[in-house]
């Protein structure tokens, strides 16, 4: 039973959606997102992520089920819930002919802000997202990454308690993605609950504390990021060496498997339950000087794929 629990930024119960063409996008979603959480919603294309966001933002009508935002029903407390929400959609959805500054100030007007307050808010978020210098440019002149940042600035202008981002870094280069991560982390530290859908699993792993994986309209995994990553049985580490490798390092342990990659690097596979200090000791004993080390695979990707398979 759904209770009014304001500690949850979002509470979803029994959410279903069948589109007019008969496609059942959601098959009974139950999901809670804690206030101040940084939450990842992952799933392959067509899994139902955008449909959930569409229903929360009222752009899509649910077939059945309920959604509460900070304890208030989206269907009955439209004004209060919408005031708490900031939505950054997957596709660009601002006028290509308007100026950057006007887009943000206009959005402020829809939330009852105008004049100096609207201008101050627009300046604050355009500056934070490095778009202030572009405020008088037509939005169509912005690059892809700038357009995505503009959508974030627009979603924040009324300072919502809950920000939902639908693949905000799709097509954004790595440097810009990192700066967006930092911005979102700062926002989360300052009390904004963030729900993120993304295809970049590394992004979810770096940013989010809790995660739900959705596939074919159903939640197949809903847990903390730590617990999910703990499910991994083995990990593969790549070592880069200072000198050329004459022979592969040998480990006196059946759990450790070692393979060469090239003349200056090799990979080691071992259980996640054990520490890796022994590896360094063994390598040091064999005179192998390590320049660097990294995880071979995106660990979350493995879990994601295994969740979908199961």
């Amino acid at each position: 039973m759904l209770t009014n629990n304001p500690k949850y930024a979002i509470s979803i119960r029994g959410l279903t959606k069948t589109y007019a063409n008969g496609f059942q996008a959601l098959k009974g979603i139950d999901l809670d997102v804690q206030e101040n959480d940084f939450f990842a919603l992952l799933g392959p294309n067509g899994a139902g992520k955008s449909t959930i966001i569409g229903i929360i933002s009222t752009l899509v009508r649910a077939s059945s089920g309920t959604i509460q935002v900070f304890g208030q029903n989206v269907a009955t407390h439209v004004y209060e819930t919408k005031l708490s929400l900031g939505i950054v959609p997957q596709e660009i959805n601002f006028s290509q002919f308007e100026k950057v500054g006007d887009i943000v100030i206009t959005q402020a007007g829809y939330y009852g802000l105008r004049g100096e307050l609207a201008k101050q808010r627009a300046e604050k978020y355009l500056r934070k997202l490095d778009l202030w210098e572009k405020r008088d440019n037509r939005s169509r002149m912005l690059s892809g990454g700038m357009k995505r940042r503009l959508m974030i600035a627009r979603a924040l202008v009324h300072e919502p308690r809950l920000l939902i981002l639908d693949e905000p870094t799709a097509g954004v280069d790595i440097e810009l993605r990192r700066s967006m991560w930092e911005f979102l982390q700062e926002l989360n530290r300052n009390g904004t609950t963030i729900i993120l859908t993304t295809h970049y699993l590394e992004e979810a792993e770096s940013l989010c504390r809790n995660i739900a994986i959705i596939n074919q309209g159903q939640i197949v995994e809903n847990t903390s990021m730590r617990k999910l990553l703990d499910k991994l049985a083995r990990q593969t580490l790549i070592f880069d060496t200072c000198d050329e490798l004459k022979t592969l390092p040998a480990f006196n342990d059946s759990d450790i498997q070692c393979n060469a990659i090239d003349s200056h690097s090799f990979e080691v596979s071992l259980s996640t339950s054990r520490d890796i200090n022994g590896l360094y000791a063994a390598l040091s004993d064999q005179g192998v000087l390590i320049k660097g080390m990294r995880n071979k695979t995106n660990r979350l990707e493995e879990l994601f794929l295994s969740s979908l398979k199961s």
Partner: peptide, 10 residues
């Protein structure tokens, strides 16, 4: 799709 700007607002 900029009508969504208004539709998601209160």
């Amino acid at each position: 799709r900029c009508i969504e700007e208004i539709l998601v607002s209160p």
